[in-house]
Structures are given as C-alpha cells and as structure tokens.
C-alpha cells in the first residue's frame, strides 16, 4: 500500500516536471514564477534583463 503510494507520488512528480519544464511555454513559466513569488534566479546577464524564464537552459549552475 505504502509502496503504491510512493510510486504514484513519483509518477505524479515526473509528470508535473515534464509539464512544467518542457510543455509549458517559456513565457508562461516565467509569468507563473513571478506570480508564485518564486525567486527570479540570478542567472548572470539574463538577470538584468528581467530574470530567468527568458532562458530555457536547465543548465544554470546558479539554479541549484
């Protein structure tokens, strides 16, 4: 029972992650981040031009 619960949780997380980072358009994601009050990631030069969300990189060393 607990196994199944954990499994469903992992699957739901994977689905949510794919939706968030791949399916959601970049601009919508940026808008959502702003709305949710998530920290605009300090992403070097991008930061000055309005923050992450313009960048679809996933490779940002400062993101973690």
């Amino acid at each position: 029972m607990i196994q199944a619960l954990v499994t469903y949780l992992i699957v739901a997380l994977a689905a949510a992650w794919i939706f968030w980072s791949m399916i959601l358009p970049v601009r919508l994601r940026a808008a959502l981040r702003r709305r949710l009050g998530l920290r605009m990631v300090v992403c070097g030069m991008l930061d000055r031009a309005g923050g992450c969300g313009g960048c679809d990189c996933q490779d940002c060393p400062l993101r973690r």
Partner: peptide
C-alpha cells in the same frame, strides 16, 4: 555533464511515465 543532466531529468521523467 550536459548528457548526464539530460539523462537525470528529461529522460528519467519520460522513462517513469512510460513505465507507468
């Protein structure tokens, strides 16, 4: 590094969904 990050994110998530 780029490949590992891909395998750990995109590919992992897709594998989980396909398994499901």
């Amino acid at each position: 590094r780029i490949f590992l990050r891909r395998a750990g994110t995109v590919i992992l998530a897709m594998m989980i969904l396909i398994w499901f």
